[in-house]
Design a protein around this nucleic acid. Structure first.
Length: 577
DNA sequence: GCCGTTTTCGGCCCGACTGTTTTCAGTCG
């Protein structure tokens, strides 16, 4: 998909224009368009001119530039702008605390052309002579440079969410704390996260802030104020704490939850209604009368909108949907009845089926599917056909003596490197469900991998495609795959796609999940449990579905056991006739 | 460059912290 490339070009246009001092509103338009391109589930190349214009932030001009890129492989305006700026200059904007104005100053007055120039000049104290730059500013630049070198990367949600709650718990012990919530992209359950945002109210803000910057987890305080402080904790993760008055908690929570463009849209709406929104509340235009702000819901209510769940707040059409009364009724944890992807110790899991069933029942589920690996995945001790039959008898025995809970018998069957499936049809026929997954040949070309998945979906016994892109966030890129084609064949064959809830997978991602919903392709939210604690990752998978605008009806494992089996034996297998 | 129940022109979200500054610009979120 060209979406990401176009987004990158728009961002670079904005960067260069900012460096060159262009109109800030034009620059913002490019940045907003870039964000919306990134979040677009559909391949931009498949959209009509009219559909392009429906993307928020894309108007006549930018639509033309997108089309220019699709036709010619480049955008003339972008190529021209690149002539105007030494290639190393844009890297300077990545230094925290160093913005376009300072970059320009360094370029014009300091002869700086690249990060290397900057580092040399700063370490030789040659910057301090420049206007507006004294030794403190020079120190900040050096520190910023160190951060850039380490990479201002995004971190997996699965590592950041627990850290955020750990910090919030630590602050809860403080006597001056009243309320505290984790906000930011963590509250929106975005799959990767750059920093941690906390919002609190306190009987003694000064004391709470002092405690915050002195937490044992803190490696270095960055800024320290009465209402806002920033620290760095391990791995260079940035944590912001905002402390506001009780009457402002909801407004601050909304403000800090973002996403930025969602907030901009809300504030814009407020202005049109003669109101003003800030992190302290929602007010009449002159700020003389407070209309609300203690609870987040008030902001939306006063704007005449239904409450918009944090997972939807990305400026991806949720405000338009809210205005039209067309917000989805997002799937919730309570809707999930079972887990369709669980490994026992027969392959690479750690527990007996009794133990797994007990753990699932304790978590409120009424069924699980045992889906151990198939014979070719030797490193995961994949089951032979004989072992599969043995497991079948074991499961039948369990179900006979445990009427309140059901174990379904399935397999996570390998899609082999050459596209064949690991078990013949007469073995698959006797199973309750079949997940087909790719565990090898990740480096094959896109066409070949897509063809393997398509072939698996065309098999009449395959119910679900497991972790459809194979990614491990921060560790392994997704394999190349034509997701639109996969979704199309899933639609045609009635195959479900998995949302694997394992926090480093989250695969499908949110954009593809949303596209699945649009096409009427069912998803299965599964934990891929290997040890029982993995069951507790279910909320991560549910969050992906919610970020993809999915409702209960889009999710296979919201069905009760009877309906599910009917669907697996009937609907899904219509393709067999 | 986008956008419209005030507008097809003229707006475009809002505030905290820092550093070098005597009143504010730059940066960030």
């Amino acid at each position: 998909m060209k979406n990401i490339e176009i987004a990158r070009i728009f961002t670079e246009i904005a960067d260069i224009q900012e460096f060159r001092g262009y109109d800030i509103f034009k620059i913002r338009a490019y940045r907003r368009a870039a964000l919306n391109m990134e979040g677009l589930a559909r391949d931009v190349a498949t959209l009509s001119h009219k559909e392009l214009l429906e993307i928020p932030g894309i108007g006549r001009d930018l639509a033309a530039k997108i089309e220019e890129y699709l036709d010619t492989g480049s955008i003339a305006v972008h190529e021209q702008l690149r002539q105007d700026v030494p290639p190393g200059m844009l890297e300077l904007l990545a230094v925290p605390g160093l913005g376009p104005k300072t970059a320009r100053l360094l370029y014009e007055k300091g002869g700086i052309r690249s990060l290397d120039d900057l580092e040399r000049a700063a370490s030789e104290h040659r910057l301090a002579g420049l206007p507006k730059i004294r030794s403190q500013a020079e120190q900040n630049i050096l520190r910023g440079l160190a951060l850039v070198k380490r990479g201002r990367e995004r971190f997996p949600l699965g590592r950041m969410l627990p850290l955020a709650h750990e910090l919030a718990e630590e602050l809860r012990k403080h006597a001056a704390l009243e309320r505290i919530e984790v906000a930011g992209s963590i509250r929106r359950w975005k799959d990767t996260v750059r920093d941690i945002d906390l919002v609190a109210t306190s009987t003694d803000p000064a004391a709470l802030m002092a405690a915050f910057v002195a937490l044992p987890q803190v490696e270095r305080p960055v800024s320290h104020g009465l209402t806002k402080s920033t620290v760095l904790v391990r791995h260079g993760v940035q944590v912001d704490l905002r402390v506001v008055g009780r009457e402002s908690f909801g407004a601050a929570l909304a403000y800090l939850t973002g996403a930025k463009n969602h907030n901009v849209r809300l504030r814009d709406m407020a202005v049109r209604l003669g109101l003003k929104i800030n992190e302290y509340g929602i007010f009449t235009e002159k700020g003389d009368q407070r209309l609300g702000g203690e609870e987040e819901q008030e902001i939306y209510r006063i704007l005449g909108l239904p409450f918009i769940e944090p997972e939807l707040r990305e400026d991806r059409g949720e405000i338009e949907a809210a205005l039209a009364g067309a917000l989805p009724r997002l799937v919730t944890k309570a809707d999930i009845r079972g887990d369709l992807h669980v490994h026992s110790r027969r392959s690479d899991g750690s527990h007996s089926l009794e133990k797994l069933a007990e753990a699932a029942r304790e978590r409120g589920l009424s069924y699980i599917a045992l889906t151990d690996h198939s014979r070719s995945l030797a490193m995961a001790r994949g089951l032979t056909i004989e072992q599969l039959l043995e497991q079948h008898r074991e499961i039948e025995a369990f179900n006979r003596s445990n009427p309140g809970f059901t174990i379904l018998h399935g397999t996570e069957m390998d899609i082999l490197g050459d596209g064949r499936l690991d078990f013949p049809d007469d073995v698959l026929r006797d199973l309750d469900l079949v997940i087909a997954s790719i565990h090898s040949g990740f480096r094959q070309p896109r066409e070949q991998i897509t063809a393997r998945l398509v072939a698996a979906m065309r098999n009449p016994f395959v119910s679900i495609i497991g972790h459809p892109t194979g990614r491990l966030i921060g560790e392994r890129e997704p394999y190349p795959v034509d997701m639109e084609e996969v979704l199309r064949v899933a639609q045609e064959t009635g195959t479900a796609l998995e949302i694997n809830a394992y926090p480093l997978r989250l695969d499908l991602n949110d954009a593809s999940a949303r596209r699945a919903g649009e096409l009427g392709v069912a998803v299965a939210i599964n934990t891929d449990t290997h040890v029982i604690d993995n069951f507790d990752a279910l909320p991560y998978g549910i969050a992906v579905a919610r970020r993809g605008w999915l409702e209960k009806g889009n999710v296979l494992n919201t069905l009760g056991k009877g309906e599910l089996l009917k669907r697996l034996k009937g609907g899904n297998r219509m393709k067999r006739s």
